[in-house]
Nucleic acid binder design. Structure first.
Length: 105
DNA sequence: CCAATGACTAATC
DNA sequence: CGATTAGCCATTG
């Protein structure tokens, strides 16, 4: 399986997210040069090989919503990993999202 | 090339 | 707050 360039860009962006921080699909889309391709970004993230180097669980919805997670454990595991990294999560939502949200440079 | 799909977002109800 | 609708774009068959 050969991955597309779009997917590589998305995963490159994911690797830049520091531990204990989260980002939104929209930010990634903007960073890779396609501000409106949030749907495509979500699809690309979901197809990632789930390698340890790609922290796909640090990607949440713009308003702080957890969103989805295709890995083992689903959304539940995603929340757990975030909390484990120091991101406070209440229900299916990041509490201090404005503070934890990471923006690419 | 056309149609369907999906880890999104914003607007409405 | 949850459900629905409509736009959005890259990928896939």
């Amino acid at each position: 399986m050969i991955y597309t360039n779009f997917q590589n860009l998305v995963w490159e962006a994911l690797k830049k997210i520091p531990r204990g921080r989260v980002t939104s699909y929209g930010e990634i889309a903007k960073f890779i040069g396609s501000p409106g391709a949030v749907r495509a970004v979500g699809t690309a993230v979901g197809k990632n090989p789930d390698a340890p180097r790609i922290p796909c669980h640090r990607v949440v919805q713009k308003g702080g919503g957890i969103g989805q997670y295709s890995g083992p454990g689903g959304v539940k595991a995603k929340i757990r990993m975030l909390e484990d990294e120091g991101v406070a999560v209440g229900g299916a939502r990041v509490l201090d999202v404005k503070q934890k949200m990471f923006f690419f440079e």
